[in-house]
Design a protein around this nucleic acid. Sequence first.
DNA 1: CACCAGGAATGTA
DNA 2: TACATTCATGGT
Length: 209
Amino acid sequence: MKEKLLKIFNRLLDRFGKQHWWPAQTRDEVVIGAVLTQNTAWINVERAIENLKKEGLITLKAIYHCDIKALREFIKPAGFFNQKSIYLKNIATFFVKNGGFDLLDDLGTDELRKRLLAVKGVGKETADSILLYAFKRPVFVVDAYTKRLVARHKLQDKLDYDSIQMLFMKNLPLDVSLFNEYHALIVKLGKEFCKNKPMCKGCPLEDLL
DNA sequence: CACCAGGAATGTA
DNA sequence: TACATTCATGGT
């Protein structure tokens, strides 16, 4: 399995090249984007982030202090704005009350993940995205595309989040750069080839089925 | 027009 | 524990 996962990774990297994730300029922006992109096309998240930047609300501290009603309007393009405005307030409050990255950086990955998951609006994928892309911790992010990949290629039967995450983390070196690129490439693959039913025609993994 | 996108919370059995 | 429902804009 180790060889298989590496083969898939190399195949994707060879075809698509480095993805340079996370597409954000600051750590705060990674956290904000992680919440905004929940079940939402990234193009719409970009519009919301653009609005926040224009309003000077692209930092967690600023979001913590801003009017939630105004925040709700700015993030509308990203959808689910009623919930996400609350979620952003929650995660912003979490960072402010915990001393921001300066103090959180000293926590162990397990403890940090546990605390992130305690924030209402932060589920496993969002927490792991923040851990990997904002905290640079070796955590594998599992998303809808990853589940499709595992299912389609029959890498294993169980398709729940924890099982799939373990599949990758127990069969690959715990390397931040590797996990960063692997997840980004899987998303790239999904966007390019697995949108509809007519599975992968020209897909770089076509011969591995 | 239907369907989906880089999910999570809540309710039900 | 395991599903079903709800949330919402914008592209295809």
